[in-house]
């Protein structure tokens, strides 16, 4: 692995790290301000499959986070980039609220399946439609493969299990565009002028945030908020660079030890 260099970029996960639904993680806004006082580029990277950039930005601003739209990189953007690159017509198995990010993409007589978290589409009939397309040769493009996510009233299934269902039934592998795909982290860094050895990722998903980032050469800091469950840090090897209580502690660690 390449040697570490001085830290220049910080990637920050959103849901579960800065906020849970409409509640900010305590102290997260002030911590972000402290981080901005350091000479680092910040990118907010999220595996959302539901919310277009505009919606994300509106929520973060409502929660008093100081964030610009061009600092956000989402898995929906990565998915759209791939659809255009492959020049396919997708069946959009995504939440209706994500559709604005796919405006202008042709979806008639589909020859690909794009799958995100879409509970209202994950019924037997729609899943069968997708299954039959894939069996006929359509590639599966998964926005991400998260197992579950945290809701106010507990954990709920993410898109990953449903992607896995289609993969198993058709004996194929999906192309995953969101975290933990390596290309996702590299795309997020594009434009920052930084290489992975100069970046750190902060998130609440041990495998997808931390494992994925560390596989590209970044450091990973796991926070015990959001979907974190006791023992998660043991799920990856090498272990996270650091596991700490929450985003503010992660920022303190960076300011004290990584600059």
């Amino acid at each position: 692995m390449a040697a570490r260099r001085a830290l220049k970029a910080v990637l920050v996960d959103l849901s579960g790290t800065l906020h849970i639904e409409d509640i900010a993680i305590p102290g997260a806004q002030e911590a972000l301000k402290r981080l901005r006082s350091a000479p680092v580029t910040i990118r907010f990277v999220t595996n959302t499959t539901k919310e277009c950039k505009r919606t994300l930005l509106e929520r973060l601003r409502r929660l008093q986070f100081d964030i610009r739209e061009d600092e956000i990189f989402t898995s929906l953007t990565a998915a759209r980039n791939l659809l255009e690159l492959k020049n396919v017509r997708p069946m959009l198995l995504v939440d209706n609220s994500a559709l604005p990010d796919f405006e202008g993409i042709a979806t008639d007589s589909p020859n690909a399946v794009l799958i995100g978290l879409a509970p209202e589409h994950f019924n037997y009939q729609r899943m069968n439609q997708a299954f039959r397309l894939v069996l006929d040769g359509a590639p599966i493009i998964a926005i991400h493969k998260a197992r579950y996510y945290k809701k106010k009233d507990g954990l709920a299934l993410g898109p990953g299990p449903f992607v896995t269902a289609l993969e198993y039934a058709t004996d194929t592998k999906a192309t995953v565009v969101g975290k933990p795909a390596k290309t996702f982290f590299l795309e997020a860094l594009r434009g920052t002028g930084c290489c992975p050895e100069e970046a750190v990722m902060i998130g609440d998903d041990c495998r997808d945030d931390i494992g994925g980032a560390q596989d590209t050469g970044m450091l990973g800091i796991l926070v015990k908020t959001g979907k974190y469950r006791a023992g998660d840090e043991a799920k990856i090897n090498p272990a996270p660079h650091l596991t700490c209580a929450s985003f503010p502690e992660a920022v303190d660690h960076i300011l004290k030890n990584l600059l």
Binding site: N128, R132, L157, G160, P161, T164, A169
Partner: peptide, 16 residues
């Protein structure tokens, strides 16, 4: 036509 069988959903829960 072909229909998804239990194995697909078994795998979904195994993965989750």
């Amino acid at each position: 036509g072909l229909m998804l069988d239990v194995g697909a959903y078994m795998k979904a829960l195994e993965y989750a």
